[in-house]
């Protein structure tokens, strides 16, 4: 009994060692917060459009695969993922919407004019309240919404090459 007990500290240490090793290896990002919305209906959304057109609401997602990208002109990483959003818009398999987060409309317009506009409609979220509604905690973030209006995937941070592939695959699956 005592003999077994003396191995207990070693056993606990072994478990911790495995955890530490796991924590060091791989591309774990401890600051990433998983979204509680995955596979749940998209939360409320009702924003004035950047261009003054019809408001951006949840109704826009109905019946088609949609992407909602949270972006701002002051956000440097947004620039990095911008070409990928342009590519997704060009694919035409999903509607690409923008959520302009805590930005001045004129800045956002100038930014889009300079870098290209992938969005079919853009909602302006001046005070960041819609962002909170969607569980946004940084810019950029990208939501993938199915034709049934449920959120299927969320990319935190700029879209990378791998994530673009994954998004395309998921868009293809959802579109079937």
């Amino acid at each position: 009994m005592i003999r077994v007990a003396t191995y207990l500290p070693l056993a606990v240490a072994a478990i911790l060692a495995v955890v530490f090793f796991w924590a060091l290896s791989g591309d774990r990002d401890p600051s990433r917060v998983p979204s509680p919305f995955i596979d749940k209906p998209a939360p409320a959304l009702d924003l004035a459009a950047l261009d003054g057109g019809p408001r951006l609401t949840k109704a826009a997602f109905a019946g088609r695969v949609s992407i909602l990208n949270v972006f701002a002109s002051w956000c440097l990483p947004c620039l990095a993922e911008h070409p990928f959003l342009m590519a997704l818009a060009k694919d035409g398999k999903a509607q690409v919407f923008g959520l302009n987060y805590k930005d001045k409309p004129e800045d956002a317009k100038a930014w889009l004019a300079e870098h290209g506009n992938p969005f079919t409609r853009i909602g302006t979220d001046r005070n960041g309240r819609a962002g909170i509604e969607w569980g946004v905690y940084g810019v950029p973030e990208t939501f993938l919404i199915g034709p049934d209006g449920r959120i299927r995937h969320k990319v935190v941070g700029p879209i990378t090459n791998d994530q673009l592939k994954q998004l395309r695959r998921m868009i293809g699956d959802l579109g079937k």
């Binding site: 911790l16 955890v19 796991w22 924590a23």
Partner: peptide, 8 residues
């Protein structure tokens, strides 16, 4: 360590 272990 709990957040780390739980995540692992």
């Amino acid at each position: 360590l709990y957040p780390l272990v739980l995540d692992a």
